[in-house]
């Protein structure tokens, strides 16, 4: 792989130097960290057995997460279409393309939780901030995939429709839509799965859903309830993944 010995050695030295530098520059409270192992043991013992007795709280959290994911996927699917069209190089003029691409790149680099916390500041605690976060990341994701699919579609089919005298709108319906629809639906279903996963975490900064319940239980040292919530989240993620791959299989 790395042939030259000197290169390998230099890389090794550089790597070690980085390790030393990064470790020493971190501000670590070693005394607190050294208590970690006993703390971990303590927390684990307090986690068992998981406490499902407050199942109403659990179901409410899960339902809210699911509702957030469903609503956001639907809104994202629709709102992603104009952005995706504008981000396809072969459909729109250069300036439009650059602006749309810019929006997508900008939104993609920001972590959902950052977006969530800003929405929480604007709209207050609760699922509204969460839904908006999920909508934003769904739009970005679906639009990006849509634009890529449009750029990769066969130009001949579109050209043939244009040659009949069809305008932009008819060209979209007859030339573009049939070529990209199945993938678009597949991506949207995949996004539903991703939204279910994300809906469980945006709550950690107060944006609603089961994550909010989890975060609250942690701050109250309610570790047995936390474990119950974690198990439910894992189950939810599993069901989401299973459903998504089943539905995408059906589409083909």
């Amino acid at each position: 792989m790395i042939e030259a010995t000197w290169l390998r050695h230099t890389l090794l030295v550089l790597g070690l130097a980085y390790l030393v530098w990064s470790m020493s520059s971190l501000e670590v409270d070693w005394e607190r960290v050294s208590k970690g192992l006993p703390r971990a043991g303590d927390i684990i013992t307090r986690m068992f057995p998981p406490d499902f007795s407050r199942w109403e709280l659990l179901t409410r959290g899960v339902t809210e997460s699911l509702e957030m994911a469903l609503a956001a996927t639907f809104a994202g699917m629709i709102l992603a279409v104009p952005l995706g069209l504008c981000a396809a190089r072969n459909l729109v003029p250069m300036p439009v393309y650059l602006v749309a691409r810019g929006i997508i790149v900008f939104m993609r680099t920001l972590h959902e939780v950052i977006v969530a916390i800003i929405f929480v500041k604007i709209f207050g605690f609760g699922p509204l901030a969460g839904v908006l976060t999920l909508i934003v990341s769904s739009i970005t994701f679906i639009a990006k995939m849509l634009a890529e699919d449009i750029e990769n579609m066969s130009p001949g089919q579109v050209e043939a429709i244009r040659a009949t005298g069809a305008g932009f709108a008819k060209m979209l319906v007859y030339g573009v839509t049939p070529q990209i629809l199945p993938r678009y639906l597949g991506v949207s279903i995949y996004r539903l799965d991703a939204n279910i996963r994300q809906s469980t975490i945006v709550g950690i900064v107060g944006a609603g859903g089961i994550g909010q319940t989890l975060s609250a239980s942690f701050s109250r040292y309610d570790y047995d309830f936390s474990l119950a919530i974690l198990l439910v989240i894992i189950a939810l993620v599993f069901i989401g993944e299973f459903f998504s791959s089943w539905a995408r299989g059906k589409l083909r």
């Binding site: 607190r32 950690i204 989890l214 989240i233």
Partner: peptide, 23 residues
């Protein structure tokens, strides 16, 4: 199990264990 728990949830757990900070 490690894959289905999000980074920020792991962070929540490890902060409880090691206290706040980069560790």
């Amino acid at each position: 199990s490690t894959r289905s728990i999000n980074t920020i949830v792991w962070a929540l757990i490890f902060v409880a264990i090691f206290g706040p900070g980069p560790v």
